[in-house]
Design a protein around this nucleic acid. Structure first.
Lengths: 252, 252
DNA sequence: AGTCGCTTTTCCGCATCATGGAATGTATCG
DNA sequence: CGATACATTCCATGATGCGGAAAAGCGACT
């Protein structure tokens, strides 16, 4: 079921081992050996050896029920990876916060969800609260819609078809046609808005990071401070930041 | 140099590949191929092949400067792993919060730091703010000291020797002898206290999770609500929760 | 510009190492 | 209590990853 295609020119035991990890993640983070074997298409003996190695290394844990879960070392690695992304993005996000005064975020597309990988909080005491590493749906967040708007229409449509458009707040867009129009509008003007679609009272301006890989920047804050004129003022800044981050991604 | 060589029967290309990932993390998240090769003790050709495979899989990214960084897929895996920990711990933490009314956390030891893997926030609006996946020093946090107190004295001493005891707030313990005594006291009574040692105005009660692997539970809140009688009341509850979590870890 | 030294990347023959099917042991179900 | 399904171990086979060495880029230094 994984989108993995065992392809040429690499260490294949590695590809298979990571296939195991991803299958485990897709199976809800916990699975028995046979589930893993059938999900990855590997022979029982082979998957057992891989799994056993991963357990020895601390990246998987075996429960007394003989089932397997993702291990603690993955948490640490993931955190370091997120911090890494944060490092090069930090200056640009910091400048955004200085110009705008609201929290700035960077997110990447992973699977069918957006993952926040960097964040610079606003100086205000009442501020948005986004955990680094947090995964959010694409259809009701600024970064999510920005990510989709930068994708070929066919790909974004495929993602939306898989995830659906569940209502999270009263303003969440739930009509497929309206959502497609929203993406098209975003594509045309270069940025998208989130009008409390994920959390009531939160307004968000987001733009794509142009470059290799899918990423997006956003600035979000309480509606009380994010009036229309403010949004109009900051939209170009967000777009510029997206462009600058894309350039960094390609050059750094 | 820090990576061991687990010689006992497993897939060795896997052990080496994860050695590469960990070396990269230790090198600050960004490194050239030769740095990786010397850090892992592998031949240049070998490490290049491993690194190349990891790049193809999306777990590493190669910068235009030909250096390597941890890739976005690791962020997603780490998040799923953290969420996984949260799942089985959630009921116990939720009960703690119901009994006590303050935020409850679960952390594991990874390397020389503590990583928060689960959290149930308190119902109060003024509450502690801990990101899942966040790494904190061991010497100035409740969970950190609880983790150390459950370790053999030699191991905890080795960790403290590596990290040192930098002052974070005025109440941070910076004297090695005093810190050793603090750990010993915690070991004796079964729980430890954090008296604003990491953040002023925050008091925290933490206890070890007895079982395989190193983990710890904590309850933390503002000093205004965490007076001495409250602490006395909740300490046994935290200890009991630690025991229950340990049992779950061994049985679930 | 020219040269030198370094790091990264590719190549290839050899032996190691991972492979997967079948056999054994162990929990779970009827 | 018997039967089934699952997890785990074993082993001969050959495919696969290994690492030394050479080629290609890149940067520095004169």
């Amino acid at each position: 079921m994984t989108t993995d295609i065992p392809r040429s020119g690499g260490v294949q035991s590695l590809a298979r081992a990571f296939g195991v990890l991803e299958s485990l993640a897709e199976l809800g983070g916990e699975a028995g050996l046979s589930e893993i074997a059938s999900a990855t298409g590997l022979a029982p003996g082979t998957s057992h050896r891989l799994v056993r190695t991963l357990v020895d290394l601390g990246y998987l844990r075996q429960l007394p029920s003989r089932r397997y879960t993702l291990g603690p070392k993955l948490v640490g690695l993931g955190e370091t990876a997120a911090r890494q992304f944060g490092r090069w993005a930090q200056p640009v996000l910091t400048e955004l916060v200085a110009q705008i005064g609201e929290t700035a975020n960077l997110a990447v597309l992973d699977g069918d969800q957006a993952v926040y990988v960097a964040q610079v909080p606003s100086p205000h005491s009442v501020r948005m609260f986004t955990e680094i590493g947090r995964r959010v749906p694409v259809h009701c967040t600024g970064v999510g819609k920005a990510l989709l708007s930068a994708l070929p229409a066919a790909e974004s449509a495929a993602i939306v078809a898989r995830t659906g458009l569940p209502a999270v707040t009263p303003t969440t867009i739930t009509d497929p046609a309206a959502f497609a129009a929203e993406l098209e509008a975003g594509r045309a003007r270069g940025y998208v808005l989130d009008e409390g679609e994920q959390e009531t009272g939160v307004r968000c301006v987001a733009g794509p990071v142009v470059g290799p890989g899918s990423a997006a920047v956003s600035v979000s804050g309480p509606s009380s401070r994010m009036d229309d004129s403010t949004v109009a003022r900051i939209a170009p800044l967000v777009v510029a930041a997206g462009r600058r981050l894309g350039a960094l991604l390609a050059t750094a």
